[in-house]
């Protein structure tokens, strides 16, 4: 799943524009990850600061 490093995120919205699912939304100083996120990792690559990370959910 996608995890947001809130200590790194600068709330710039770069990730929002590249999300093919429209799952991200910038709400003032808060990045919201919606349920349509597929953990594709495109946003994590585009982030200028490295604030986004797709984490392995591990064994169920």
């Amino acid at each position: 799943m996608l995890s947001v490093r809130r200590d790194i995120c600068a709330y710039c919205g770069c990730c929002v524009s590249v999300c093919p699912q429209g799952a991200l939304e910038l709400i003032d100083a808060y990045l919201d990850v919606g349920s349509s996120c597929t953990s594709c990792g495109i946003c994590a690559k585009a982030c200028p600061l490295g604030a986004l990370e797709v984490k392995d959910e591990g064994p169920l």
Binding site: C12, G13, C14, V16, S17, V18, C19, P20, G22, E25, L26, I42, K45, A46, C47, P48, L49
Partner: peptide
Amino acid sequence: VESKFARWCGIDTTVPLREIMSSA
């Protein structure tokens, strides 16, 4: 750049990864 409104109205506004200037 982080627009949502048009997308909620059904318009695909996705910027291709290679065409976003990741900036600081």
